[in-house]
């Protein structure tokens, strides 16, 4: 494909104080590609995607997102204006606003849409995540699964070219996990470029074009899901997979 990759990371290093949390990360994600990252906690997978949406800054190497090179430095970086959507483990909805207002705030303030336009857009995405009837409720009145779907719709309202998911189902009750994963799968089927940090391996098998296993701040293994799950090259990957697949 001649098109430039949506995300391109070259030799990226990052430290928190003395601790190196990202070691020589090279990653390229092309348009429409779905990457799933897994690994034990503290392996740097969240930090990696937080660097892509500039909630963290890297200190060495280069990261380019949507053809824009991100600044390095000890402080957090620039605001990407909603070009990169991020879904958090804890939803981070605005609890004092209705669901609809959660969705319309950024399009109105950042993209200068009128209220009517923003609400139309918001309802369109609420229908896609199948909760248009909850538009006037407050986030606290919804279930966890519904809240996370609202959070996904909220990111989509900014019409990002890339979606990042940071363990989107880890804070959910088991019975609510599938409704959120279904939503993400639908999004993947529509061709959205995405990077997803998750431990849901069934989901990973289904959506991933590229599986990445991280440990100790490094990318240990990357492979297509078929090979990744059946015959991973590295012992650490095998060990990790057997631990989380054994129960």
């Amino acid at each position: 494909m001649p098109e430039a990759p949506v995300v391109s990371m070259q030799a990226v290093n990052k430290w928190f104080g003395q601790l190196q949390v990202l070691k020589d990360i090279n990653l390229s994600v092309s348009s429409g590609e779905r990457v799933v990252i897994c690994g034990p906690s503290g392996s740097g997978k969240s930090t990696l995607i937080r660097c892509i949406c500039e909630l963290e800054n890297h200190q060495q190497g280069s990261i380019a997102v949507n053809d824009k090179t991100l600044a390095t430095g000890p402080h957090r970086g620039a605001n990407q204006g909603g070009e990169v959507g991020m879904v958090f483990q804890q939803f981070n909805l605005f609890p004092h606003m209705t669901v609809l207002r959660n969705l319309t705030l950024a399009p109105m303030r950042v993209r200068d849409l009128s209220r009517a336009e923003a609400e139309e857009l918001a309802m369109q995405y609420l229908e896609r995540v199948r909760i248009p009837d909850q538009a006037q409720k407050l986030p606290g009145q919804l279930s966890g699964g519904q809240q996370q779907r609202v959070a996904i719709a909220r990111s989509l309202c900014m019409q990002p070219r890339l979606m990042l998911f940071d363990e989107p189902t880890s804070a959910l009750d088991p019975e609510m996990i599938s409704e959120v994963l279904e939503t993400i799968i639908e999004l993947a089927d529509e061709g959205m470029t995405m990077i997803c940090v998750t431990h849901e391996m069934g989901f990973a098998k289904r959506v991933a074009d590229q599986m990445i296993f991280m440990d100790g701040g490094e990318i240990v293994e990357r492979a297509a899901p078929g090979k990744f799950f059946s015959s991973p090259d590295h012992g650490r990957t095998q060990q990790f997979l057997s631990q989380i697949l054994s129960h």
Binding site: L55, N79, G81, M158
Partner: peptide, 13 residues
């Protein structure tokens, strides 16, 4: 902190 982070990723100043 998540409230600040969500606002930032949505592009709010």
């Amino acid at each position: 902190r998540g409230q600040f982070e969500a606002s930032r990723t949505l592009g709010l100043g």
